[in-house]
Amino acid sequence: MALRIKSHWWNDENDRSLAEIGSALAFIAWRIAVDKAINLHCERFVYSNDAQRLQVIQEYLVFLIQIADRLSFGRFGDEDRRALVTSFAKKCIEHLQDNSTDLLGPGDYGQVFVERLNTRSGEYADFELSPEGPSYAFLRHLGFEIQSLMGQHEENRWVIDQVMDKDGWDAYKRFAKAFGDLFE
């Protein structure tokens, strides 16, 4: 089933704040991340539980936050770029906290995500995003992290290939298009 993403403002005559755009980006990123987690299941990769699936969603969110930061570079000054990416990340944390609480029960899921985001930000810093898209290393890192989360099930041994060759690339394309659309 195709994922439909609305990335145009209903009333495009109004100016949008960076916080509003960040919130819209977070909603779009959440939908893409969930879609990619579901797609792994549809491709017959195996999750042990909902917590594992939520961790895969988190890896996609971290990846898309890195993409947003790179797409913002050159479009905004440092202060506006920081404001946009920060509001985007904060809204992602809210989505994650709400959904994790619903699935797993009470807990501070946002703090764990912030720690993951901070760690991954340092790791992704060396990878390139060109006008053609993320580099091989960028996508490989996403695939590696998801492979690590999926465990050593025999069914999951090719998950890195699925993420690198299809799902990560598709997530990037959908998100980059939506990112551009929100600024039209």
Rank of each mutant, 00 (worst) to 15 (best):
D69M: 06
N118P: 07
I160H: 10
A51E: 15
D15W: 11
S130K: 14
D161L: 03
F144R: 08
H141F: 08
L96W: 08
K36D: 07
D181H: 02
A176K: 03
F113N: 02
Q162F: 01
D15A: 15
I67A: 13
Q52K: 04
A26H: 11
T119V: 10
L71E: 09
Y136I: 14
R157M: 04
F45Q: 00
E132T: 10
A37L: 01
I93G: 07
L40K: 00
Q55H: 12
V163S: 04
I21A: 09
V56S: 04
K166F: 04
L3N: 05
C92S: 15
L96F: 11
V163L: 00
I57Y: 01
Q66T: 09
L117I: 01
D78W: 13
Q152I: 03
R157N: 02
I38Q: 06
L182Q: 03
P131H: 07
K177I: 08
M164E: 15
Q147W: 07
K91C: 12
K36R: 14
L142I: 02
E132C: 09
R16L: 10
A68W: 04
H41F: 05
V34Y: 12
S121C: 07
F27P: 03
F183R: 04
G107V: 01
F138R: 12
L139I: 07
Q152S: 10
A125S: 07
C42V: 10
K166P: 00
I67L: 07
S7Q: 06
Y60A: 06
Y60D: 01
P106Q: 13
G180F: 02
P134N: 07
E94G: 15
E154C: 01
R157L: 01
R174F: 10
E132R: 15
H141V: 01
S100I: 14
D161N: 13
F73E: 15
S121G: 13
A89H: 10
Q111M: 05
F175E: 00
L71M: 12
Y172T: 02
A37D: 06
N118R: 11
I160F: 02
F73Q: 14
L129P: 10
Y172G: 02
Q58L: 04
V159G: 00
G151M: 12
P131V: 01
P131N: 07
Q147I: 05
A178H: 05
A2Y: 11
S72I: 10
E43V: 03
A83E: 12
K166L: 05
A37V: 01
I146W: 00
A2F: 08
Q97T: 15
D80P: 08
F27N: 14
H95W: 15
N49F: 07
V163C: 05
E155A: 05
K166S: 03
H153L: 00
C92I: 12
L103I: 06
G143K: 02
S130A: 13
K36P: 01
C92M: 15
S135W: 07
R53K: 09
I5D: 00
A26N: 05
L182H: 02
A171Y: 05
W169I: 00
P134L: 12
